[in-house]
Amino acid sequence: PRKKPPPVKDGDHLLEYHYTLWFSRKSPGKQSSSSVSYNSQLKCIMTFASIEQFWLIYSHVARPHELSGHCDYHLFKDGIKPMWEDEANVKGGKWMIRLKKGLISRCWENLILAVLGEQFIVGNEICGAVASMRYQEDILSLWNRTASNNEVTSKIRETLKRVLNIPQNTIMEYKAHTDSIKDNSS
């Protein structure tokens, strides 16, 4: 279940949206392709409403590179579950960026600061961001509401390139969630 953000203190800087940070870990040996088991692995860490609340949480959770095994951080707008079945995601898609080991923590921080700071300027299109830690590589994803809106997805791509500070030759791939479901890749 999601949690309410704590009361905002005097002097806190409010964010445009409230966000929830989730964590999931694939249990070894278990088949976890169904949304039921994925749902049960999702743990809500915290919902926050201000910059200061974000930093408080962020400084208390392990950074992505410190985690071992197959696990994910999900930072989504409050009220949107980090799964394609959510009504905000069902027509959406994601930009995926595969990263060599060693880059994920810095890139994840760059990505979420851009999301929280409203740097994408695509209205309410951004749903959330995911850091996926895997054995051979790590993957960053940025989810938006409308996969069919090319103007929005290219604008997101340009902002991603600017804020992430990743090598020029990094491959960025866009996938509609409906395609990920069809090819069973996510």
Partner: peptide
Amino acid sequence: GTRIVYDRSFLLKCRESPLAQ
């Protein structure tokens, strides 16, 4: 309406604030 926009350096500066500790 107006959106609340923050750049990276401002967000990082807020990390130093006592409220974020």
